[in-house]
Design a protein around this nucleic acid. Sequence first.
DNA 1: CTCCGTGCAAATAGTTTGCAACCAA
DNA 2: TTGGTTGCAAACTATTTGCACGGAG
Lengths: 139, 139
Amino acid sequence: MTPEALERSRNWLAQADLRPTRQRLSLATLLVGDGQDRHVTAEGLHAASHRVGDKVSLATVYNTLRAFCDAGLVQEITVDGTRSYFDTRMDDHPHFHFEETGELIDAEAAQLKIAGLPTPPDGYEVAKLDVVIRLRKTS
Amino acid sequence: MTPEALERSRNWLAQADLRPTRQRLSLATLLVGDGQDRHVTAEGLHAASHRVGDKVSLATVYNTLRAFCDAGLVQEITVDGTRSYFDTRMDDHPHFHFEETGELIDAEAAQLKIAGLPTPPDGYEVAKLDVVIRLRKTS
DNA sequence: CTCCGTGCAAATAGTTTGCAACCAA
DNA sequence: TTGGTTGCAAACTATTTGCACGGAG
């Protein structure tokens, strides 16, 4: 873990008034240490933390991701019924989902041009627009 | 159950070469008996079948919805990580999702105008485009 | 008669929670 | 010190599955 990564992770937690505990710093570094946007599942992040030698229990990974989500540091993306994905990028943007691998990546937001959106029913407004482009291998 | 509803349900099952058992006919009638498009969860459909006096076990509701899905009679919509929705309308179209109630309804497909879609990575093509418009009550 | 379909209970997968020990402020 | 955090195991929810019985062709 480089000093810059640690610094970035600390700031990221501080933004949300979350105490920089060992576990949170470790997970934060895996998520935003290099400044890149990332999409993780709880299992995936848990595995990653073990891979770098940090020990964080699976329950804590779940609780921490939930805490990051509540704090507005990551957003939960629903693509697959069976698992939750968490995205470190916070704006509304489209995703590509690879059906065989389950991998989730960002799609170029600029390439998605929505010229018209269905009008919400009376008394409701759009809270969030989810666009998931499911991909299959070209035949 | 009107004769037309029964007829429609029979044809619907026949389309997919599924045997018209008592349970399947009952569920099919609840789904397409009136010719309307519908969005159900397994629990919801199970409750509905009990409401009309037909007894179908929850496991059978799950298995039957899965069978309908595999047969191309309904499509599974993922909006909520915690439960699966099944839609009797088979084309790609946008949905409104009410966050408080969990209700899922169709949005006018014609009102959604997509002028540009992100280009899939090499070797992949779009299998399905999911658009979920999450709604909140107007403040 | 032969298999597919059904129901029950048990298994499973992902996630959350209760509670005692622990640690950052 | 003290209240937030962690880890473990147990609880939970949605869904699937094994297996014996029952019904459709």
